[in-house]
Design a protein around this nucleic acid. Sequence first.
DNA 1: AGACCCAGGTTTTTT
DNA 2: ACCTGGGTCT
Length: 699
Amino acid sequence: MPRRSLLTRGLNPEQVEAVRRTKGPVLVLAGAGSGKTRVITTRIAYLIEQGLAKPGEILALTFTNKAAAEMRERVAKIIGADLARDIVLSTFHSFCVRVLRAEIEHVGYRRNFTITAESDTRTLLRRTLEDLDGAGETFDAGTFLERIGQLKSAGIDPAGAADTPALPKGAAKSPEADKKKAATAEKYEKWLPEIYERYQSALRAANAVDFDDLLLLTLRLWREHPRVLGRYQKRFRYVMVDEYQDTNRVQYELLLALTGKHRNLCVVGDDDQSIYSWRGADIANIISFERDFPEAHVVKLEQNYRSSETILDAANHVIACNTVRRPKNLWSQLGKGRRVDWFITGDEEQEAAEAAKLLRYIRGQTGAAYRNFAVLYRANQQSRPYEIAFRQANIPYVVVGGQEFFERAEVKDLIAYLKIIANPRDEAAFLRIINVPRRGIGDVTLHRAHDICRTQSMGLGKALVSLLKGGDLPRNTQAGIRQFLGIVNTFRQKYRDCEGRLASVTVELVDHVRYRADLFRSSKSAAQFEARWGNVEALISAVAQYEEQNERPTLSGFLDDSALVTNEDRRDKEERRSEAVTLMTIHSAKGLEFPYVFIAGVEEGLLPHEKSTGKEAIEEERRLFYVALTRAKRHAVLFESMSRERYGKRRMTKTSRFVAEIPEALIRRRIRAARDMVADSTGESAPKPRKRKPTRKRR
DNA sequence: AGACCCAGGTTTTTT
DNA sequence: ACCTGGGTCT
């Protein structure tokens, strides 16, 4: 009999049910804006309050650092920061890093393993492929990487890759292209298991793991070492998962293993918001939860606390067109509100200009702040015209996305230094900086070293030493190698002895390799140099920050953080609260809300995207549109251009099929194009621009 | 090592 | 249109 709890005050009956149903598997189907985060945080607090679990016995998994941080903050508000600190609340990946840092030796890696960034993974694979070029083949690394990623998120190893068919790709345009593609695809499929295998051994030899490995190795660890698994099972008596619709096969298996004993697994998600299948998310995990957990309780949260009835109604009608989903009916009590507006303009410049105009108008009418607006789009390239128009109209904006801090060349260089210091075997890191700054160690030397690695199976470092011994290297190359090895050894020692004072050693390292001078030399302008050096300084302060925030800072710890953290996480609160319109992809808008949402480019080819063909893919695109609509609290506005420039060519467009799925009574069509452009498309509810040359030429 | 040119390809990207 | 990677030339 649970003690009386005040925690559930203000929750609706379904939310209360979700909070109090603590035993056994629970699936909370949480529609958009239904107070999902509130339920999870309250549930955590409830478990602790009722004495069902100590904070350290609760594991709550999210997909983003941001979500994890937000959740911890909200739990802390309820139960206090001290208790909240001990809850294991993190992303799947960080959780696995934690496990692996302690246990990875069981599965044949060393404790000081490094995490290979996605971009480095490419380089690594390319090098792997080079060895195969002897077979007279040239391959594109990206293609393999994508397939290997898919296999890995499905939990398939190289051996299993041979009998796994490729996912069907979109149809090619012509029969010849079709045939050619098929031939290429066949070739790739033939080589896939071999290449996957080699890629995996290269990582292994480098004592490095990629993102997928974090999950995969944890699963393997648990499967092969039941006693280790037993410890985790015993410790985590309650497991909760946010955004469950985004879990992939491996994550699902991890959950299954971890909760195998007590089965206290509570997953929260919304199949209608599953938009990451291309990253391996398996919608089957949520669709058929009860098949895997027959004793599961299902709680549906259908009251929406975010959007007006009109917006919700429109969104409901759209999503109802999907066939693969769990039926639900979201409702709202927030009043009818405004109709969805649908603006049709001539081209993308007009579209953005119109958006700017409307934004100003709404601001004038309502006094809404800039941060109450978001422009959402399918593809990043769509931000351009909006940026230009907003700049012209003096509207402050921030573009979410773009190049990640840790992907900048100078940052990667220094990270590579740190990696090679932390993990001497990290070959990718090695190759990246062995000749940065220039030390006269060129391709020839590296290839020779690489050959030694392969024939005598030793690490690059050792291979270089043996090359030195051979004595037939150019003198400056010899000096370069000695110098490089010296730096690495010296700093390995320094980092070991620094007692957590990582930042100051890092400053010393940057000084020692004369990185600043090298940046200056290779920069094309003073401004570029300043920007790059600024990044270096930012990295150093990131080290300093890490050092401050951790009780036992280690180099590996910092590297883990930097591998798992995104730009968005680094952005501080100040910045996030900033008074500006947000421009971002629909994908990155998931979980957010804005009073005014502008959806750009509701056109065939863009939303749904032309690359998404087939029923399943179209349904995912529809979910994307649904996610976009349900971000809006008060007013959703669609923008469509009658012509759009793509890949350098201006083409006429067609209205997105999804627009017609919104009942006419809920939407208002507004033409904002030159009259001669729309002469043949007025009157009907769905305008179909004929094949005509746009009147307005691009400038 | 760096400059230069051509070919290919363009989605989304929690970690 | 634009960027990237790869190859070749200087």
